[in-house]
Structure formats: C-alpha cells, structure tokens
C-alpha cells in the first residue's frame, strides 16, 4: 500500500508527542503516533485505498482522502474497526447541507455531534448506556476525537485560525454516542431519518453543549416533555431564537414512561414542536430588549417542523435525567445521516 504522506523520524514515543504538539497537530492531548502499519491497518479494514476521495470540502475545494483521515484516526486512538465510522461521519460532514466551513469556523463554538446507529455500534464497542454523552467507552471517545483532529489537521480548524469560537464547549474534544437500540422500543434515529432497517449509520449535527435536565416526579409524557420544552425555550431565550435541528437524549428511566403510555418518537416530536415556542418579546426579559423592536408579538418555534427534532435513546439505567442539545445557529447547518460503508458520491459502474 503506497502512502503519500510525509514521513517524520522521531526518537521515541515522548519525542513523538513533543513533535506533534510543537507543530499544532493535536488537540492538546497525547496522540498515538500514526505509523505506516497503523494507518494501513485502518485503510485495509475499511477496504479503502490511500487516495480514495472521501469528499471535497465545498468552500475551500479541499480534497479529503482516506489516507489523511486514517492518519488522524490513528492519532485519536482509533482501532482499525473504528475507522469506517470515522469515514462515514466525515462523509456526512462534507455534504452541503451540513455547512462544514460555517459550523467549524463560527464564533458560536459548536461541535460535531455524532450519533451511531445499527449493529456496528456494538460491534466496535460503543456503549450507549452509562455516561452516554462523554467518555462512555473507548470507541465513542476515539471516533469523536478523530473528527476533531481531522478538522484541525486537514482543514486548519485550530483555535484562532479557522476556528473562531469564542468559548467552544467540551464536546469539541469528542462528541460521539451510540443510540441504545437494544434498550429501546423506539425506532432507531437513522431509520426514522429514512435509512434502511438494520443498516449501520451515522448522523452528524452541528451542536451546542448538552443542557441536562431532570424530572423524576411524574410518569406523564406531556409533563416530562414540558421539561424538555422548557429547556429548548431557554436556549431560544438565551442563545438563538432561530429554529433548527435540536436533539434530545432520553435515558431509560424516562423512556419507560413513554413506552408505557405508547408514545412513539413521532409523538414526542409532535408535542415538542407545539410546545417549544417563544415570543420575541421574551428577549426583553433576558437583556435583549434592543432587538425586540416592534416585533414583540412574533412567535418563534424551536423546530421548523417536527422532523427537525432528533430523538435519541441513550443513557444509564437509573435517574430521571435527559438532555437537550441545541443547534449551532438556527437552520444554517442541517443534520446529515449516511450509511457506514456506503459511498454517497460513487457512481454505479
């Protein structure tokens, strides 16, 4: 296998760390040196040649090859079996509706949320239960981190360079989870978004930090969702009033109440579409009165349509918690779902 990337000789593991850090090629954490053997192992596992064109970043016309993705995946700690998920996620990020440049360059400071569905999630060791949104397991952490390193090293998305985030959030280190399909009676996210039944898929979303909520004091679906709606409204009041893709994460304790009441994900979406709304006049209560002007009576919805809500089953078994994950900035970037191992641009011979 002929790799085209430049080779660098270093004395040992510690020298490799300093070499990479000194060139700005890391996220601040140690990296796994991307030896030829490790990079080739990723490519072989995914069945990709090094110069396979994964996609082209549309704003800067930068070609993204499998070799470069594999190098960064190794650096992030990925095993070869994780690499197809990384390729699929970056393929999704390169789709025009995702607006990769805007989402990664913005002052708003979002991160790329990755949701993995299908049998591959468990096969590569992703755990959708305890600590689902951070450090749940090796695969989730490494896959999410690989995307960030790819952005840094392939797209110059470094703080102060292309990345102009004022604050960012911890999800920029890694923001990846699997959906708990085995523990849920709901349709998987990818299937709801039109992917084939049983296919392994990734969904990417330009996302703000998760806003955790708690409601352990009811079993009524409407009351549980009123807490989610309140958090969505809070985001509209404090951050952005514009509608976009929101995600909610629903752990087992709350899911049980929906399942008992016969509520599907579609029911959840329909309810939140109606309830997550604010008037522009509410901005005056939050110190933003200057932009209310004569539009105080205008009503804004968090979701342009119910389908804009991503409902994700994940989380540890005990506790009436949940999370709302808001969009980067309204409808500018759209969540994208692709199948793992499928080429969305390939022509049928």
């Amino acid at each position: 296998m002929l790799l085209s990337s430049t080779r660098h000789e270093v004395a040992d593991m510690m020298a490799a760390q300093e070499f990479y850090h000194s060139r700005g090629w890391t996220d601040g954490l140690p990296v796994v040196p991307p030896t030829e053997e490790a990079v080739e192992a990723c490519l072989e596992w995914a069945g990709l040649v090094p110069d396979h064109l994964v996609g082209v970043e549309p704003v800067r016309a930068r070609a993204i090859t499998a070799e470069k993705l594999a190098i960064n995946a190794v650096m992030a700690g990925c095993l070869p079996m994780h690499f197809p998920v990384v390729v699929a996620a970056f393929t999704a990020m390169l789709q025009e509706p995702f607006l990769l440049h805007g989402a990664t360059a913005s002052t708003g400071g979002c991160a790329v949320l990755v949701v993995v569905n299908g049998p591959m999630a468990a096969e590569v060791g992703m755990d959708a239960t305890f600590n689902a949104l951070a450090s749940s397991d090796r695969a989730s952490t490494a896959i999410g981190r690989a995307l960030r390193l790819c952005l840094i090293n392939m797209m110059d998305v470094r703080p102060g360079a292309i990345d102009r985030s004022v604050l960012g959030h911890p999800g920029k280190i890694s923001y990846c989870l699997a959906e708990d399909e085995a523990g849920s009676q709901w349709l998987p996210l990818a299937e709801e978004r039109g992917m084939p039944v049983g296919a392994s898929c990734v969904t990417v979303m330009a996302a703000g930090a998760p806003r955790q909520l708690m409601n352990e004091w009811t079993t009524v679906p409407e009351e549980i969702l009123d807490t989610f709606a309140s958090e969505m409204r809070a985001n509209m009041r404090h951050y952005s009033i514009w509608p976009g893709n929101y995600a909610i994460v629903v752990p087992p304790q709350l899911r049980a109440h929906f399942h008992a009441a016969g509520w599907s994900k579609a029911d959840v979406r329909a309810y939140l579409f109606e309830k997550a709304r604010i008037l522009r006049s509410e901005w005056a209560e939050c110190g933003k009165g200057a932009v209310v002007r004569d539009r105080g009576g205008w009503e804004y919805t968090a979701l342009s349509e119910p389908e804009d809500l991503l409902v994700i089953a994940a989380g540890g078994p005990a506790g009436g918690f949940g999370a709302v994950i808001p969009p980067w900035l309204g409808p500018k970037s759209r969540a994208v779902t692709v199948a793992i191992g499928a080429c969305v641009d390939c022509e049928i011979p």
Partner: peptide, 14 residues
C-alpha cells in the same frame, strides 16, 4: 477581530 481569519482564508484560497 476577523482580519486574521480573512487573511488566512485568502491565503488558503490562493
């Protein structure tokens, strides 16, 4: 505040 970003984008776009 965005001068450095504009200069970087101009550079990477040739």
């Amino acid at each position: 505040t965005f001068v450095s970003a504009a200069e970087l984008m101009a550079r990477v776009l040739g």
